[in-house]
Simulated assay, not measured.
Amino acid sequence: MSTPNKDIGKVEVRIKWDPSPHGEPDIDLDIIAATYRAEEPYGSPAYLVHFDSRSPDGTITLNRDSRTGQGFGFDEVMTIELDRLADRYGRVVVGVAIQQRGGRKTFGEVGSTVVQIREGYTNLVEDDFAGVGPSTAAVVGEFSRTGSGPWVFRADVRGFDADPDAFAAVMGNRVSGA
């Protein structure tokens, strides 16, 4: 969707992918959420939520963490309660990174990848990472607000060539023209 969605309350970020072929190293995709202070929306993140963790105030929780892509439905799920996030935070950037433990893997090499960001039963974004196939990490969306105003969502699928740690440090950088 190209039009921003306004007054977002609570969302669920979900990813799924096919497990690696028999005998190959496991493929592990991770959802990462970076929260930024209102007064410094493009500075360093105030905190990150990823790898089986949750935010200090409990508003962002990784509910399901898969290290293999095995299972039915979505393999990894994160809940973001924007309506409970303190006014001191003005931006949340959501991304997906591929762990690089078993050798370099890109989205183009991972089968049946899908990311969804949903509010209730409404998909705010759904993407298969085809547009960022050569990348090892990707931003998938951004939530922002001014002051205590309503949260606005912007779909923003853009790829990075970075491991999860390096990606977490740059995923919220300003996009040229933004």
Rank of each mutant, 00 (worst) to 15 (best):
M1Y: 09
T3D: 12
P4Y: 04
N5Q: 15
K6N: 11
I8V: 15
G9F: 01
V11S: 04
I15Q: 08
P21A: 15
P25T: 01
D26K: 11
I32F: 12
I32Q: 13
T35L: 07
T35Q: 06
P41G: 13
S44I: 00
D52V: 10
R54D: 04
S55E: 01
N63I: 08
R64F: 02
D65W: 04
G69D: 00
Q70C: 13
G71V: 03
F74I: 01
F74V: 05
E76I: 00
M78L: 05
I80W: 15
I80C: 10
E81Q: 14
E81C: 02
E81T: 15
R84D: 07
R84W: 08
D87I: 11
R88I: 09
V92R: 00
V92T: 02
V96H: 06
I98Q: 02
G102W: 04
V110R: 14
G111I: 11
V114F: 09
V114D: 07
V115S: 03
G120Y: 04
N123D: 14
D128R: 13
D128N: 14
F129Y: 06
F129M: 03
G131H: 02
V132W: 11
S135C: 06
A138D: 08
V140N: 07
F143M: 14
G149P: 00
G149T: 05
P150D: 15
W151V: 07
F160K: 01
F160W: 07
D163Q: 07
P164N: 05
A166V: 15
V170K: 06
N173I: 07
G177W: 10
